[in-house]
Design a protein around this nucleic acid. Structure first.
Length: 356
DNA sequence: AAACCATACAACCGCCCCATC
DNA sequence: AGATGGGGCGGTTGTATGGTT
């Protein structure tokens, strides 16, 4: 048995609001407020509208200081950045943009911004290519501890660096890289977890060692939050589990991506394997890798987040557009990794929660 | 000028979660 | 414990507007 409707659907007006209705609603709320009861409000205000419709009209259009019109570049950046971090939680995003409503931002995202960003990512880069385990094991030794004072360092160009770092914190690591075609790939590596061919262990001094395991016919399947879907649409995460493929011979015809099954024809470039020991060498020329972690700095953010959902660390917003573009691809599964310590592996939209 | 089409935006719907009574 | 209402979301629809044929 479903819920009782909030109003008599047959006797309420629907469709666009007239100026008279707007005036009635505004006048009533200006005088008496909402009274904390939207359902009863329309009758009191003399409106033949559903309470929810009144609420929506007020919140999205009539309340003071609503900003309409073009979004600025700064607003674009904030929306992209937050979307990459927290997914489609429009109300939280709207809270960072004074005068903008969640509905406004949602519409803007769906009709303009998403397309704008898609246009910025060339088709041939919308792929998730090979990330050979060989590239890890070819590194002679772990690098010295690498700490990051700001998230902007996340996208440091590691062209001249070896392919992994150890980190000095207790969080998981985000491993990202580019293949020979400059396509971005990314993976979350969790402590003491054999992840495909890569193992992350904690050392005595609480640093992490990231070790690749040489295996002739296996590579790393990247649990990306972004992959090329039908009609070249961007598809963002939204799954319970990371991508996985148990095939050991590279003949995987289907992989699971959370609750989605992605068929071979859809995942061209998504799942790739190194089939020979020299798999790395032919990528070496243009390959760039970097390993980063979300450590103490993000934990500070976590504390703020826990106290106030709207408290987004400003440092998280200081990306240039290029970084935002990459964030779109890389960070949606990491953004909440430490944002809410009380939730574990909850799937909601494009977001992941992990608990350590 | 009229018909058609694409786009942007406002608004609605159904569902869910949570707080309150 | 269950009912109710507020708030939020994704998805969708309706309408106005502007461009093209």
């Amino acid at each position: 048995m479903g819920r009782a409707p909030c109003c008599d659907k047959a006797n309420v007006k629907k469709g666009p609001w007239s100026p008279e209705e707007d005036a009635k609603l505004k006048e009533y709320i200006d005088k008496f407020g909402t009274g904390g009861n939207w359902i009863a409000l329309p009758q009191k205000a003399g409106l033949k509208r559903c309470g929810k419709s009144c609420r929506l009209r007020w919140l999205n259009y009539l309340r003071p200081n609503i900003k309409h019109g073009e979004f600025s570049d700064d607003e674009d950046r904030i929306i992209c950045s937050l979307y990459a971090s927290i997914g489609s939680r429009w109300s939280i995003i709207a809270a960072q943009l004074p005068g903008r409503t969640d509905n406004d931002i949602k519409n803007y995202w769906n009709t303009k911004l998403k397309k704008k960003l898609m246009g910025m990512i060339p088709l041939d880069q919308r792929k998730l290519p090979l990330f050979s385990s060989n590239s890890l094991t070819n590194s002679s030794s772990p690098q010295s501890h690498q700490s990051f004072s700001s998230l902007s360092q996340l996208y440091r160009d590691c062209t001249t660096q070896p392919y992994y770092y150890t980190t000095s914190t207790k969080s998981s690591c985000l491993l990202t890289g580019y293949d020979a075609h400059q396509s971005l790939i990314s993976s979350v590596i969790q402590p003491n977890m054999l992840y495909n061919n890569i193992n992350l262990t904690t050392t005595a001094n609480h640093s992490y060692n990231l070790q690749g395991h040489v295996n002739q016919d296996q590579g790393l399947i990247s649990p990306m939050q972004f992959y090329p879907g039908k009609d070249n649409m961007l598809v963002f995460g939204g799954a319970d589990n990371q991508a996985s493929c148990s095939s050991s011979d590279g003949s995987c015809s289907q992989i699971s991506y959370g609750n989605k099954e992605i068929k071979q024809e859809q995942m061209n470039g998504f799942c790739n394997f190194s089939n020979n020991m020299n798999g790395f060498s032919h990528h070496q020329e243009n390959q760039r890798f970097m390993l980063d972690h979300y450590g103490n700095q993000m934990n500070t953010t976590t504390a703020a987040w826990g106290a106030n959902n709207n408290a987004i660390s400003t440092t998280q917003l200081q990306y240039d557009l290029e970084e935002v573009k990459q964030l779109m691809i890389t960070s949606s599964n990491m953004g909440l990794l430490l944002n809410d310590e009380n939730k574990t592996h909850e799937s909601r939209g494009a977001m992941y929660y992990y608990n350590y």
